[in-house]
């Protein structure tokens, strides 16, 4: 039978406590993941002056539009949903604004349909006779990139791909929309 001498005890204690180290490491990694998650979830809205997050919108008629490809134009991105009553307030004004700028060719309107179903969405577009490109926010990827908080929200991107204007409520008139777009246009 092996005797436990003081030397043996010292040798046993001098080994690294791997169990404890692993436990602490695991705890540290878990806390780091939670911290990263909390930080990203508590990020505020995108701000004016920051580069507009890029996205590709697949429209209801299957056309694919990428924001980056529209560099050099002013892009009006409107988040809406067919179940959203405030969206109805601005729908006609947005369409009127689109028709006003359409012939210039340097202003693009994009409608992003958020957490909606296709049949009511198509009925909504038909009801307000909306003709600018519209498509669903597949996987809510676009709204997450813009960190939207609801609908309607409108983001206007300038010719350099920078966010120039943000509206987190419905536009109240065509004049208000024009006032947001006109300063961004080259004379």
């Amino acid at each position: 039978m092996e005797e436990t001498t003081p030397t043996n005890i010292t040798e046993k204690k001098s080994g690294l406590p791997w169990g404890k180290l692993l436990a602490w490491l695991g705890l540290f990694i878990l806390l780091a993941i939670v911290a990263v998650g909390l930080l990203s979830s508590q990020q505020g809205p995108v701000t004016i002056g920051s580069p507009a997050p890029n996205f590709t919108l697949t429209t209801f008629d299957g056309q694919q539009i990428t924001l980056e490809a529209l560099r050099g134009k002013v892009v009006v991105i409107n988040f809406w949903a067919s179940w959203c009553k405030p969206c109805e307030q601005e729908a006609a004004d947005l369409e009127a604004a689109w028709r006003y700028y359409e012939d210039r060719g340097d202003v693009v309107f994009l409608g992003v349909d958020w957490t909606d179903t296709e049949t009511p969405a198509m009925a909504y577009l038909s009801k307000f006779d909306i003709t600018y490109p519209n498509g669903p926010d597949l996987g809510t990827r676009i709204s997450q990139a813009y960190r939207t908080t609801g609908v309607p929200e409108t983001y206007i991107v300038d010719q350099n791909g920078v966010l120039a204007y943000i509206k987190l409520s419905p536009f109240l008139s065509l004049a208000e929309i024009k006032a947001a777009i006109d300063p961004l246009l080259k004379p």
Partner: peptide
């Protein structure tokens, strides 16, 4: 769960958005 009304299961969510989802 619909993102409009977080933490409310779709079967008991009273919003129109959720009603549309149930219809879907």
């Amino acid at each position: 769960y619909c993102p409009v009304c977080e933490n409310t299961p779709l079967d008991v969510c009273p919003t129109q958005a959720c009603a549309q989802w149930r219809e879907l």
